[in-house]
Design a protein around this nucleic acid. Sequence first.
RNA 1: AGCGAGGUGGGGUAGUCUGGAUAUCCCGUCGGGCUCAUAACCCGGAGAUCGAUGGUUCAAAUCCAUCCCUCGCUACCA
Length: 749
Amino acid sequence: MSGEHVLICVAWPYANGPLHLGHVAGCYLPPDIQYRFERAMGNRVLMVSGSDEHGTPITVTAETQGITPQAVVDQYHEMNLKALLDLGCSWSTHLDPRGAEYGGALFNRTSDPDHKRMVQENFRALETGGFFERKTTEQYYEVNEDGTGRFLPDRYVEGTCPACGADGARGDQCDACGATYEAVELKNPVSKMNPSATIEIRETDHLFYRLDLFQDALEQHALNQQSSWKSNVKAMTKQWLDMGLRPRAVTRDLEWGIPVPLDGETWGGKCIYVWFEAVQGYSTCARIWSKTHAPSLPEGEETWKRWWCVAENGTMPRHLYFLGKDNIPFHTVIWPALILGLNHVHKGGTASEPVSLPGPGEFALESNVPAMEYLMLAGGQFSKSRKHAVWLPSFLERYDPDTLRYYLSINMPENHDTDFNWPDFVERVNSELIAAYGNFVHRVLTLGARLPHEEGASPFAAHDGHSSVEAHRAHLEGALGDITTSLQRHRYKEALRAIMTVAQYGNQVLQNAAPWKHLKEPQDGADESLAALAFCWRIARFLAITTQPFLPTSAQRLWSTLGNDDDVSAMAWQESVNWDAPLTWSAETPQPLFQRLDLDEILAAEQNLVEEGPESDAVHGVKGGKKKGGKKVKEEIEGITYLEFETFMKVNLRVGRILSVEDHPNADKLYVVRLDDGTDDGRTICAGLKAYYEPEEMEGKLVVFVENLKPRPLRGVTSEGMMLAADDGNDGVRLVTIDGDIAPGSQVR
RNA sequence: AGCGAGGUGGGGUAGUCUGGAUAUCCCGUCGGGCUCAUAACCCGGAGAUCGAUGGUUCAAAUCCAUCCCUCGCUACCA
């Protein structure tokens, strides 16, 4: 197994905002654990990723902030890379200390000129091979007053729905009636970014990648991977393949990206579609790595091929892709189709010949895609727009990175969504990481320090290797086997749990041996007792080596405390059960590995953060949310407890009389209600009351409605407000009506 | 309503793909021990008809069918 080439591919974070804990748990922490583990196993590991820096959202951010797109991506590239490094991820290990032939890591970016050049080369090669087809499409074009203009992506256009006539329909789909249509069918289109501009429809040519030509090969590939892929990966991939693959656009009318490398006026002002381009970063990054960091090797700039190509004897490099569940088909269908296409044209093939799976010398496809589900925050999804997130940079400013790595690993969304919340975080860190593991090694070291020993020499020297520890040795060797198997199967939770169980085992050994009895004067049984203590030092050493992939910072602290001056990440995995390893010892007084966390303090700090934020209304710091009430605390930090009085008064409630109730022409559950609201025109409200009221029951009633709710089309009828009704959550719904008689339009407050 | 995920002692969970005997771990709880250690550590107890029903099987938390409920996204939620 040793010496295998392993390529670890990490999904490229979009350089349009900071990373949050959901990203970390989903795709940035697991690959780092794997990288460190594979290295310890003696494999040759190359890890690649970087910032995804092109595409329309970034230009939008730039426009809103009044800066250039390059400034936006520079800012977030730097911020995200720093956060990942602060988290202890190995991106600064450009070259493996064992030598360049053992690999390294590179966190690149898609604005890298080499990346652009390589993508353009690949683009031309696929074009020459006939894998693109050209189609003319119609797109929106925004014309400014000075005559300049640009094409607009569908999502930046809105207008009137051609099917139901509702306003506010998006470029390609109507939210009101659900109709989908060609973007150009929309009536009265308006640019969201620039409402005053004239919108025209212009023809524009684009190239499409012939995904359909890869259907058979990809189905075969998916079949081959059945035994190794996780069930969510299998399911998502199957869904895509069953739908049938269709050509997919690879060019875009877009300013911020890699220019289409073809001659002719048609292609001016067009860029390569981001999906086609960024995903190639997995290979361009490896090539750039070998160019910058491995020129001294025999193959020089071609070194990357050791990780990318099938060897002449048929040996496959192992390719692992780490990503979130939303990205699965992209990496099991689309990216493999590109790899196969490149293989095909590199050996001189064209699109008219059938494509085949990789053979010797060709680019390999993925071995496994250990995709994660989502990490939720206090029961809800992380959301940038709702500011419902814990940002990685701000977390790392305040807390030990290993506490986060521990909690996210032991709680990793491997098989289903899991939840991050502060009470649970504090609980697990304090009781598992600190009380079980941290406390164990501290006990061993302080006990050792109290044993009589010469300055600088190990106090355990006289007690090591006693025959009574045989069983303990076997136990740890067994545990190491389990941990190794778990990690090879990408079961991180299980692996870390097994490591923590070893710490627990250590506590038991200590408890049974009770070596403290012999500190002052040896009593009966001192030999065996102190032999057990000496073995506990070896357990601590075992823990330093095995926690290293998960908790690199504290593992190194422990390693140094144990009296080593080298780097624990360079230790071979098997070294953890080397019972002949020298008994190193540090003369310094042992310090606890971790600081205990205090929930009240943390909640107070997080509360301040929320209040400092720009949208801090509706947050009251509620003190006294002591330990237990997990639910209660959740609500507080989500900031949804109290409403400011002014906020409440923004809601205008008025009385209206129901004039008529009709069935919605296009919806099963809705009534269209005409209301006398005291104005001449009256108003129309859609209400989902069909299940609870007959029209006759409602007509004539005086009800309360929200006057200033933003009108919104519902299935083609614009609803101008909302009638208040009580809902017992148990199928009982009743309208709020007025006691006695009062004029429609009266204010309610 | 559609898609996705899930229902396991008081709370949070492992195990489910690959069926096997007393169902895992953390917290809480009750009792005992230890006193080296960061209010930490160790031992023991109580507490679960594994969402429901039916089926397959010598054997089901695990496989199949039907149903109920919860959550996320979508939405005829206003």
